[in-house]
Design a protein around this nucleic acid. Sequence first.
DNA 1: TTGACTCAACATCCTTTGCTACAA
DNA 2: TTGTAGGTTTCCATGTTGAGTCA
Length: 454
Amino acid sequence: MAIELRYRDGTIHLADGEDDRSSDLESLPGVEPDPRSGGYRAPAYRYADLRDAIEKGGLPYEERVFDARGGDSLDLATDYRLREYQTDALDAWEDAGRRGVIELPTGSGKTVIAIAAIAAVGRPTLVVVPTIDLLNQWERELEREFSVPIGRFGGGEQRREPITVSTYDSAYLRADDVGDAFEFVVFDEVHHLGGEGYRDIARLLPAPYRLGLTATFERPDGAHEVIADLVGDRVYRLDIDDLAGDHLAAYDIKRIEVELTPEERQEYETAQETFVDYLKSTNLQLRSGSDYQKLVLRSGNDPRAREALLAKQRARNVMMNADAKVDALERVLDRHRGDRIIVFTAHTELVYRLSRRFLLPAITSETGATERRQILERFRDGDYSRVVTANVLDEGVDVPDANVAVVLSGSGSEREFTQRLGRILRPKDDGGRALLYEVVSDETAEERVASRRR
DNA sequence: TTGACTCAACATCCTTTGCTACAA
DNA sequence: TTGTAGGTTTCCATGTTGAGTCA
């Protein structure tokens, strides 16, 4: 009798009938005995390895993992003509056994590659995206390209079709009960999959074909290694500089250094000293994010640690929201009267301050969906030529193109910086260059923060 | 259907140069 | 001699999102 493979609740179950093949089965990747059923089981994401090992070992097997409804091949056709690097990326993914991550900058056409991959695989596909905005964009794009109905998990709808788009949150909630429906899964902005909860999505799905898309694969916490295990290694990579001047606009980065006022300097030094003194007195070394995490943990029951962290927070506020930055922005706005400008900050309070002072439309997490849409539409139509925002427009939102970005403050995250830069790199009609201003408070920790993100 | 609300999850959060004990 | 980890176990604050609930 053949070994029967079935999917149930995020797990592959193996039954070998009356034959005793326990030693064969236990040597298969990820397989262990299942006391409850008396058979064997393996985590769903190991399905591809499992099937390969069974075939290699010449064991007879019967595949009942996927829902019969997805039995027929999808007849998918798309008119897209890929650019050379897009074809190379797709080939690299095919060569890796239709698994792996493609890293390409924002605006280089990652969606196009995914659509070509969906057409090539021709099997039921789940596309997972981080935001409702992207959910809508993907749905529209897929409807335009394919003649099959497009399903949707998220934003209040739960409709399953051979090609379905889902948010990460909905995919997390539904993975174990729809796992048998999809043989191909595409993770857009795949770096999100490194989150503690989200990685379960990939674990619970048996889909043998997997594609991850991102502009910034590596994560500071090292979780990209988990992603590589679940989706496949990075198989292709180009960064902004590989495409700038060709498929993306050429760009310049200008750094503006500003001085703190005497009062700000006094406040900054006092707070910074409190923080550093605590580190010295406790012999604590901060070399990485995890060291900082230790300090945060300690602050739970050590009042001095808590005080040190609050002081650090104060110092950060001073350097990131310095008065001179507002003046620097005024000069930039004067210099670029005819340009389209996006201003980025790290704090919402500064967004509203700038909005009042320069009469700029503002978008933060507090801005409702309707108002946000209106502002972006007016920016797209040219009614507005400037927008100020905190972190909302970093990722997952279709932002109209601009040619000047001003980063007044931000984190040390390379990802955040790359995403912000990406907002001005759509090729310009006149072939002009994009320009990013980075405003940094002189002689503060912000200089280090700024160098870390590049 | 919309809006206001709560909740949970995720991301970032990083000083200046060195102490001590222990393992390789 | 050289290299490396270091005690703990729900986590200071801010920003952002999606899901769910209720009116």
